[in-house]
Design a protein around this nucleic acid. Structure first.
Lengths: 351, 351
DNA sequence: TGAATCCGCTCAATCGTTTTAGCAACCACG
DNA sequence: CGTGGTTGCTAAAACGATTGAGCGGATTCA
């Protein structure tokens, strides 16, 4: 059976189409309550709900927002951004049209055009991880960048405060009493921008604590995977005992997982013999590690909310030109403890 | 600046709106090439692309599909289903409007209505994991179920073939020479339907191999997490040596990860002393485990494709009433080997 | 008493397309 | 020269809503 239209309601209520529209959107206070009741009753009886396409054409607003991303929806990393975006959209009666481009520029261009053709009210341009992007030319006026930042600026953007997050992580280790703190970094040809930022935070926190950074303690893995973390950690643990770190700040949780296996292979117990802190708070790895990993969370949900709120115009950035930095909170689990007492054998063998 | 409309193109080309529409959709062969060229040139010059909302109103098809799910997009488990759905949608010029309901029935109802109001061409009702669902009443005619199946039937549905997948896993272990194969199951109050199905497959493969199922080897964890897997595995490894299994088929990869830690705590080496096979092929866990886990993959991507293809009408199910079962392929990594030679000490200590 | 205001509603235009019916000019044919 | 068919295009009616202008009657006010 076909959808019921406003004309059906009008017929049922014995009034004109205009009247139905007026009462449904209560746009005209002059219509007496009795008539209003009649119209509402007819609408309810027929099960009428307005056709959003027709309304979209007339009103020039579709109550939809587009969200293009490289691979957010289809990879397990940043889904919480979507949750934030969707929640805000729902709260304001909007729907979100999602396109994952798989990082293909042509797909992306086509997608943005298709979205514009569909008259989306706003566009969110999102990345899976913090990047600075060379954004396409013809973006809608209402575009906001999520977890990335356009080279030229010109649109609101929100990214995690990786620098501050790095500092937070290192401060946590300092507070536990560590002085020899390593940074397990990544050495990819195009390392993520977060790498440099977290390093800055690391340096900052060391400086704050009056610790002289030891270049020897800044090591690199080839990739951001467990494998990369493991090989980098091996470098550290190969150091003579006195120069070895007592704590590791790993670029991310996966690398931290690799650090766990490197430590375990030498019979080191975490956190007794070695404290480890990660970054990202990836549930599947951080929470499942043994012991569960203390880490700094990427505020994906909050960033998704922020971006959508400004896209919808319900929030205005303090400084519309600037990139909004979102705080990365620390998630305390069980991989950090005070360093082994100086001079004590860190324990070659498990009991 | 406002969008360019078809009337702008018509003016630029010096023809009527009808003509422009006709050539853009090449709907009338009678228009001479010369005029066609002129129109196309004008369209290109002005940068015209048709307004999909207006077209949607006129054509009664919006070239969008709705995808409602419990929490697919926002959790790291089943994102590949989205990838499959999106790829098919894109291949056919469609956009997908995504709503994660967070399993809230009211949100779900509202979302389905909102999608219907937006005149989606088809609806995909998806779940994060294989379930049989009590689907809402007023679903669009074109609805297909993805990774779940409506109690009453009535719509096409696709789910993984968990039974066959379970059999595949166990056959792999049998082929490696194992005879004492345990099933590390889950004992949640409402255990996933996949649990019973994979058990069936387990039984089937044992029977096939002429192995008498040993009830002692069917153990339960409290949850589908690593913790659950670990405690269930402990039960198995507490068994006297002669009754202990040489291989574990774990309900999923996370439980398999738990089995790894249980084994490691007893100094058992995988796969030398104990073979382990998982289910789901969750990248973040299966591939990162040490050694990488052999597992049976959930065909998320293919299911997403299938569902979307039938939703779009480009594929017709062989039996439209039946639930389509999608094959679960085995992913061989390094956690399965032949059992330790009979009588040999399985090795209490690492070398 | 005449003008102004209010009441309760409806008319008709509009949003930007697609598509059917058909007009005017021309040609061919008997 | 009338008829019929083609060619090249256009007018106008949808699609389903929203909304400003307006209409006829009753009431109020000067």
């Amino acid at each position: 059976m076909p959808r019921v239209r406003i004309s059906d309601v009008a017929a049922a209520a014995g009034v004109s189409i205009s009247t139905v529209s007026l009462v449904m959107n209560d746009r005209d206070a002059r219509i007496p309550l009795e008539t209003q009741e009649r119209v509402r009753a007819a609408a309810a009886a027929t099960g009428y709900t307005p056709n959003s396409v027709a309304r979209g054409l007339r009103m020039q607003t579709t109550r939809t927002i587009g969200l293009v991303s490289d691979t957010i929806a289809t990879t397990p990393y940043a889904g919480r951004m979507l949750a934030g975006a969707q929640d805000v959209a729902r709260e304001h009666g909007h729907l979100v049209i999602l396109v994952d481009t798989g990082d293909d520029a042509e797909v992306e261009r086509d997608a943005i055009r298709a979205l514009a053709d569909h008259q989306i009210d706003a566009l969110i341009y999102a990345c899976m991880w913090h990047r600075v992007v060379d954004a396409p030319d013809h973006l809608p006026a209402r575009t906001v960048f999520l977890d990335c930042r356009p080279v030229g600026g010109g649109h609101p953007a929100v990214v995690p405060d990786d620098r501050a997050g790095g500092a937070t992580a290192v401060r946590e280790l300092v507070a536990a009493g560590h002085r020899r703190i390593a940074f397990v970094d990544v050495d990819e040809p195009n390392a993520p921008i977060a790498s440099a930022l977290r390093l800055e935070g690391y340096m900052e926190a060391l400086r704050e604590a009056g610790i002289e950074p030891d270049p020897e303690l800044h090591v690199y893995g080839a990739t951001t995977t467990a494998k990369g973390g493991r090989s980098a950690t091996d470098l550290l643990l190969d150091l003579p005992e006195s120069r070895r770190p007592t704590a590791l700040f790993c670029f991310n949780d996966r690398m931290a997982a690799g650090a766990y296996v490197a430590a375990r292979h030498r019979g080191l117990e975490i956190p007794r013999d070695l404290s480890i802190i990660g970054f990202d708070d990836q549930q599947l790895v951080a929470a499942e590690l043994d012991p569960p990993l203390t880490t700094v969370a990427l505020p994906h949900y909050e960033m998704g909310r922020w971006a959508t709120e400004v896209a919808l115009g319900v929030r205005t950035p303090d400084d519309p030109g600037a990139v909004h930095l979102m705080e990365c909170p620390i998630i305390r689990r069980d991989s950090v403890s005070p360093p082994p007492a100086a001079g004590r054998d860190p324990g070659r063998r498990r009991t």
